[in-house]
Amino acid sequence: MIRIENLTKRYRNLQALQGINLGVKEGELFAYLGPNGSGKTTTIKILTGLARPTSGDAYLDGFHIERDTLKAKKQCGLVTQTINLDHELTVYENLDIHGRLFHMSAGERKARIVELLEYVEIFDRRNSPVKHLSGGMKRRVMVARALMHKPRILFLDEPTVGLDPTIRRRIWSLIKKIQQNGSTIFLTTHYIEEAEFLADRVAFLDEGRVAAVGKPQDLMAQLGSWALDEIADGEMETTYFRSRDEANRHIERQKGGFALRRVNLEDVFLSMTGKRVKPA
C-alpha cells in the first residue's frame, strides 16, 4: 500500500532523510519510531505532498507521489502533529470544507459528517466553534476530518502528543477501530507504549536512516524477555534475560539497587543506536 524507495530530503544544512526504503502492507498499522528530529515528520510531509523529496520515489496505493500527485493525495488522510483546524469555524464547517476539497457531493458530505462525528463521539458539539473545544476534542475532530473522504491510508503524525494519559488511551481505541474498518495506518510517535500497543510492525528511525524494521515482539525477543536496570559507577546499566528465573539468579548475586521489568521497544532502540527514543 505504501512503497518508499531511496527517499532523501536535504534542507540547506541538514540531511533530514538519508535513503529511506520501506514498505507498508494493506490494512497494516505501521509505527514509525524515533526521537525528535530523526526525520519522522519529514517522511510524512513528503508522502502527503507537503514537502518535496530531494531524491527517491514513493508510491501510495500504486500512485507515484509526484507524477500522480492528485491521485496519490486522494488515497490519504492526514492528521498533523500540530492542530491545524480553522478555529473560527465550527466543527461541522471544518469537515464540510475538507469534503469540498476532496470533491465530495453535498449529500455525501452531510451523511459522512454525521457518521464521523458520531464515530468520534463529538456529534453534540458539531455547531461549536473549534476554539471552544478541549485539546482532546480537537484531536478527535482532526481524525474525523482526515477520514471524511474515506482514505485508504491514514497518516497520523504524533496524534497523541501533549494529551493526558486518559485521552491518549481514548485516541488509541479510536485508531484501533479505524484499522479494524480496513484502513492502512502510518503512525509516527515517540511514545514507546503507543507503538507497542498499536503497531503490527515498527520501524526505528535514527538520524534520517531506518535502523530496524519488524514486529514489536520479534524485535524485543532478540534482546530477551526481561530487563534488569542497575546503577553501576553512577551509570545506569541494563542487562537482558531470556527468562525471569535467569534474571532472578543474577539478582541474587547483586548487592546494590536494581529494577526488573519487561523488555520494551525503548531497549531495542537503545541497543541499536545507543540513544533513547524519548530523552529522559
Binding site: 507537503l50 492526514l78 480553522d86 475538507h98 476539497l101
Partner: peptide, 14 residues
Amino acid sequence: YWRIFEEFQAAPIR
C-alpha cells in the same frame, strides 16, 4: 499560525 495551508497542500486540488 493556524497551519491550515497544510490542509490545502494535502488536498487533491490544483
